[in-house]
Design a protein around this nucleic acid. Structure first.
Lengths: 354, 354
DNA sequence: CTGGGGTACGTGAACGTTCACGGTATAATA
DNA sequence: TATTATACCGTGAACGTTCACGTACCCCAG
């Protein structure tokens, strides 16, 4: 009844096409790869016949030929090792099946945004074929990305997007969804109505603005069970974030919930502790790092929205490799569904970052 | 300063080993693959030299030779198309890079547990090299799995485990964590204390018992904010489930939360509707299928624990392939972290089942 | 001494694709 | 007409690995 979608017949190769048309394999090769030196008519005949026979290129044979392996450089910070190492693991994992056709070179900068320009220039000079970066300072990277585009070196952004850069794609947790999930969780965690606050990094970044939009959309959808009374820009300066958090807490003694949309949630937690309100306020944070773990265990942080670095790494490398190998372009943006990490799944997540 | 972990040197191949030792490539091949017809001494010399030079086999070349491609059969039900199709997509996606060395044949049985034995026998008879199955009736599959093991045909279980079967590994959402997440969510969703109920499939299955354990562990950790007052075995008969749900609802007029740990949550929802208690009770369900979507949108289902079929498929095929290709054994059990699906991330999940 | 059987190893042809090179037409120029 | 240029296409060698086959050698029975 059901059409058999898998004819386990002998796979048809380039030679089969050549024999069927009475041409040589060289001609078929030229036709299939848009190379010069072939009549437009025969090219079309080859393409038609290839489609008719259901030709699928043998990736193994193709890669066998290319002695000069594809080189991709990966530029990531060292700062939050647990997070970035997971990302690297994902990249390594995805790259493994293609060795040694594909070789991945990891280069680190100390912190997000520090020294990334130098790494970028060095990579371009060394003649890599592709690049995976976590853009800390998109503005500084923009001219470099144009130079890369000029030499046909594709770039994949991970974790955060740099929409103004010339990039092949970006892989990240969808910020709107991240904010929306945080908003829904916070709404539901409140017993009845209550005031909540939103702590962000710098709203200039498109990502953070999107998170806020998603957050507000969820509050709306949840019938305004929660009132957003404060949006605090914490920047990424620890001291400033701490002081602003204190100010916000004092200004809103009835606060029942907090979402920290930036990775820098520790200053807010310290402020909560200082004011003796840990555990009395539902806190949702972003990402996961060692210092956050005890807070989750203790219940001071109800949930954290995790950006799934392993999957990001896997998908980033897969997209980049497919483009370098086949020329197939990925969607402009690859959005992952973020994980909700709570006390109950924390251990499993720490065990194997999946 | 930092040790360069990637020497972009020319990859060392089987010929390099042969030349270094003054033997032929055939001898190196025999040594590396435990084949007969080689002196134990030279085998060791080859292995040592291979390790010293850092030999990594070129997968492309290896697969090129094997004209007889590896055949794996995938046996999945048709029943809940949205779920099983996602699983199939994950398998296809993971298999794509290895075509045509690896050919995947999909066979369907109408519902979970129906006709799986026949499919299994047919697959063994047809001489497949590996099998991916969702065991509906582990007891019936057990003797077959031994026959498969006797002929060295590895089996990978997905979605649910069959620990008594001879299987290479199983890929599934960790049931303890699934239950624990549900328990934590439900605890936090309740405004203050409250009674909750646990609806399961048949507790005989190891998976469901594990879910209950995880669920109870979470209630304990959440300081008993919620009281588990009822554990209902709904079986998978729609009518029986519906009647039992009605009974449970009537017996507990103060019920504030429900977790349905089996995929069959619709009878429970119908019972809730019948008694006019939809929306008054926090409901957490399992998995995702079209009929559940409007309930999530309406807020009648606060969250559903999603088993991530795409990832399951990907990982199942990857593990099976690695074993068939390299002989590397995966861990006995591969546990995925389940997704928490709510209104806020439902759309993204429906869009691209990631 | 011959021969048969075993062990240990070398040899070379494939696998499907790519690419540089060479060849053969036809067209343009001297 | 002879020469050169151009467009198109065929040829064959590689890529790294595997496998069937061939060969050299040693041991021992006939």
């Amino acid at each position: 009844m059901r059409a058999r979608p898998n004819p386990p017949a002998r796979p048809v190769g380039i030679k089969d096409i050549a024999r069927a048309l009475g041409v040589s394999t060289g001609t078929v090769d030229r036709a299939l790869h848009d190379k010069p030196g072939i009549n437009a008519g025969t090219r079309q005949r080859v393409l038609d016949k290839a489609a008719a026979l259901g030709y699928r290129p043998n990736l193994a044979a193709r890669h066998l030929k290319s002695r000069t392996s594809i080189r991709v450089a990966v530029h990531l910070p060292e700062e939050i090792a647990l997070f970035w190492d997971s990302l690297r693991d994902g990249i390594r994992e995805a790259a493994a099946p293609f060795a040694p056709t594909l070789s991945v070179e990891f280069r680190n900068n100390p912190r997000l945004g520090e020294g990334e320009v130098e790494l970028f220039e060095k990579a371009l000079a060394s003649g890599v074929n592709g690049l995976i970066v976590a853009p800390g300072d998109p503005a500084a990277l923009e001219p470099l990305s144009r130079r890369a585009a000029a030499t046909r070196v594709p770039i994949v952004c991970v974790v955060t997007d740099a929409p103004t850069c010339e990039r092949l794609t970006s892989v990240s947790a969808d910020p709107f969804t991240v904010g929306a999930v945080a908003g829904e969780l916070l709404s539901r965690f409140l017993p009845g109505r209550g005031e909540i606050a939103f702590f962000t990094g710098w709203l200039g970044t498109e990502d953070h603005a999107e998170k806020l939009r998603g957050f507000e959309a969820s509050l709306e959808a949840e019938a305004r069970r929660a009132d957003l009374v404060s949006v605090v820009e914490a920047h990424d300066d620890e001291q400033a974030g701490y002081r602003r958090a204190l100010t916000a807490l004092d200004a809103h003694p009835e606060l029942k919930g907090i979402y920290v949309s930036t990775v820098n949630s520790l200053p807010v937690l310290r402020a909560l502790e200082r004011r003796g309100r840990l555990g009395k306020i539902s806190v949702v944070t972003t990402d996961l790092f060692p210092a956050l773990v005890p807070h989750i265990r203790a219940g001071h942080v109800a949930a954290t929205i995790y950006q799934r670095p392993v999957s990001q790494g896997r998908q980033a490398l897969a997209a980049l490799y497919r483009f370098l190998a086949d020329g197939t372009r990925p969607p402009k943006r690859i959005k992952l569904i973020p994980h909700v990490v709570m006390r109950s799944n924390l251990d499993q997540l720490l065990g194997r970052m999946g």
